[in-house]
Each structure stands twice: as structure tokens, then as C-alpha cells.
Simulated scan of single mutants.
Amino acid sequence: MIRGFRGWALAVLVAAVAGSASARETERGPVTNLPLPRFVSMKAAEGNVRRGPSLTHRIDWVYVRRDMPLEITAEYGHWRRVRDRDGAGGWVHYSLLSGVRTVIVEEDMLDLHARPAEGAQLTAKLGVGVIARLGECLTEWCMLEVNGHSGWARKTALWGVAPDEVRD
């Protein structure tokens, strides 16, 4: 009897874990019905970051970098809770955000390659903190474009794209 109960309990536990994993993968924002979390970028050159989702909440700081990638973690009305690459965040009005995808380079002198391969010809080198427009992404590589230069970079050197994300 104990053996049967353990087997049943294990099956319930596995089903619960599998169910929560699939729920996490398909979590949708209550306002937009878009996936959460998801990456966006700053449309505005300046945007207030507030403690809560309204104009009455205190401004904690101001983002001052157009195209900076941010991760939306929650939605409430016209407000989006975001976090930046340092983990800092707060609530930003949706009109300040864009669906255009960008990334921040996190590795100094990051090589951009003509093809998604380590030995491929170099097209450019990017410094830490450079913001690039995100294009196609494979399992380990993403196509970037910045100031007229384009090429493939290793995904692990970028913030603003999920490790398992593939884009066409």
C-alpha cells in the first residue's frame, strides 16, 4: 500500500511541476495578452520610472537612453513593470516603450561575424554597453545591426534576448 501511495504521490508531483512549467511558458499579460516576461525597448529619449502604476506614485529615477532594452514583467492598465539589465526597475507608461527589439553588449570588444560561426570573418567589434538592434536569433547566435554595421554575435554576450529564444 505504501509503495502504491508513493507512486501515486510522485505522479501527482510530476504532473504539478509539469503543469506549472507549462503555465510559466504561456503566461500572458492581462492587458495585452502578450507573453510575460518579454523584452521591449525605450521609445522615448527619457522616461520616468515610478514605484507604482500611476502618475501619483513617486518617481524613483529616469531612464535617459533611447532604444535601451527592458524586460516587461507585469502589466496594469496603461502601465508596464520593467526591469533593466542591472535588475533595477519600476513602472513605466506604455507610450514610452516600443516593440522594437534591441540588446546591450555585455562583453568588451565583442566580435561580430559575417556568419554565425566562431571562425567566420569579422565585420566589427563592439564595446560594452553598446545598444544594437536585434535581428534573427539561432540557438547560440543573434544577428545585430548598429550604426550601419551588422553581423552575428554570441547570444551569451548580450542582454535583451532570452537564452532559449529563437527569432526569424
Results as ranks from 00 to 15, higher is better:
Arg101Val: 07
Arg65Met: 09
Met109Phe: 12
Arg81Pro: 06
Gly135Lys: 00
Phe5Trp: 15
Val100Met: 12
Ala9Cys: 00
Arg66Cys: 06
Arg133Gln: 10
Val82Pro: 01
Val17Cys: 03
Leu70Thr: 03
Asn48Phe: 07
Ala153Asp: 02
Arg83Ser: 02
Ala18Asn: 03
Ile72Asn: 00
Gly4Ile: 11
Val128Cys: 10
Leu126Ile: 07
Asp108Trp: 12
Leu112Asn: 11
Gly89Ala: 05
Val128Arg: 15
Arg28Pro: 12
Thr139Pro: 01
Ala157Asn: 04
Gly7Pro: 08
Thr56Ile: 05
Pro69Gln: 01
His93Ser: 12
Leu112Pro: 08
Gly135Glu: 02
Pro35Leu: 07
Val128Ser: 11
Glu106His: 06
Leu138Gln: 02
Val14Phe: 10
Asp67Cys: 01
Leu96Glu: 05
Val62Arg: 14
Arg50Asp: 10
Leu138Glu: 02
Ser41His: 09
Leu13Trp: 08
Arg80Leu: 05
Cys137Val: 02
Glu107Leu: 15
Ala153Ile: 07
Arg58Glu: 13
Asp164His: 04
Asp168Trp: 09
Gly135Ser: 02
Asn33Gly: 08
Gly4Tyr: 11
Met68Leu: 15
Glu25Lys: 14
Gly127Pro: 11
Gly148Arg: 07
Ala74Met: 04
Val166Leu: 04
Ile2Val: 14
Asn147Cys: 03
Tyr63Lys: 04
Arg80Pro: 03
Arg115Met: 07
Arg51Met: 10
Ile59Met: 05
Cys142Pro: 11
Leu70Cys: 01
Ile72Asp: 03
Leu122Cys: 03
Val166Thr: 13
Pro37His: 06
Ser54Gly: 13
Arg58His: 09
Arg38Ala: 13
Leu10Thr: 00
Gly151Glu: 04
Pro35Lys: 15
Val146His: 15
Gly160Ala: 00
Leu144Thr: 07
His93Ala: 10
Asp108Ser: 14
Gln121Ala: 00
Ala88Ser: 14
Val31Leu: 06
Leu144Cys: 08
Tyr63Asn: 09
Arg80Phe: 04
Ala114Lys: 12
Tyr76Leu: 14
Pro69Met: 00
Ala16Tyr: 09
His93Lys: 08
Thr102Trp: 04
Val92Gly: 12
Ala132Gly: 02
Asp60Gln: 05
Val62Gln: 13
Leu70Ile: 05
Ile104His: 01
Leu126Gln: 14
Val105Leu: 01
Ala45Gln: 00
Gly89Pro: 12
Ala45Lys: 13
Arg65Gln: 12
Ala114Pro: 08
Ile59Pro: 08
Leu97Pro: 12
Ala132Val: 04
Tyr63Glu: 08
Arg83Asp: 00
Leu122Trp: 10
Val64Gly: 05
Gly4Leu: 13
Val92Phe: 10
Arg66Ala: 15
Gly29Val: 11
